[in-house]
Amino acid sequence: MTDTPVNEMSFEQAMKELEQVVGQLERGDVALEDSIRLYERGAELKKRCETKLKEAEEKVAAITLDGNGTPTGTTPVEGL
């Protein structure tokens, strides 16, 4: 785990650390108190990833082009 506050992490940083946390928890060789701490950190990281994905979705939805390549406004992008 890093010392970087979760709310300052990029999506990539949060996802990488979340994968590490999940890996440690899946191995099951962590003491109970450490498992609780890891689970709490993982929950924060998951929330950060969801927030960053939502921000990206909103940015993509705001970029809609007409047939001439001119931005036309906001249209949600399906699947995000």
Rank of each mutant, 00 (worst) to 15 (best):
Q24A: 08
G69M: 04
V77I: 12
T75Y: 11
E40L: 07
T64G: 10
T75L: 13
R48N: 07
T4P: 05
I63V: 14
E50D: 09
A56H: 08
C49K: 05
A61Y: 03
K47Q: 15
G79K: 00
T75K: 09
E33M: 10
D29R: 10
E26N: 13
G28D: 00
Q24T: 08
T4H: 07
K52C: 04
T2M: 09
C49R: 05
A61N: 06
K47T: 15
A62F: 09
E57H: 00
K47W: 10
T70M: 15
S35W: 01
G28T: 03
K16I: 13
G69T: 04
A14I: 07
T75H: 11
E19C: 12
L45K: 02
D29A: 11
E57V: 15
N68K: 14
P71K: 11
F11Q: 12
D29K: 10
M15K: 12
L25Q: 02
Q20M: 07
E12G: 11
L80A: 12
L38N: 00
K59E: 00
S35K: 11
R48E: 07
I36T: 02
V22D: 13
P71S: 09
N7F: 13
K16H: 09
R37C: 02
T74L: 12
V30M: 01
D34R: 06
M9R: 07
K16Y: 12
S10Q: 06
A61M: 00
L65W: 03
L53M: 09
A62P: 06
V77A: 11
T70I: 13
K46I: 06
I63N: 05
L38E: 01
N68F: 13
R27L: 07
T74H: 11
N68I: 11
V22L: 10
K59T: 09
V21F: 06
E58A: 03
K54V: 02
C49I: 15
T74W: 07
T51A: 10
M15H: 10
D3C: 11
P71D: 06
A14C: 04
V77R: 11
V77T: 15
K47H: 15
G23A: 07
A31Y: 08
E58V: 07
R41I: 02
E40F: 09
E78P: 15
C49T: 15
D3I: 06
L53W: 08
E8R: 13
A56M: 13
A31T: 14
D29W: 08
L65F: 09
D29Y: 14
V77D: 09
D3E: 08
V6F: 06
S35A: 12
L18W: 04
V60C: 12
V60S: 11
V21G: 04
M1E: 10
K54D: 12
E17D: 07
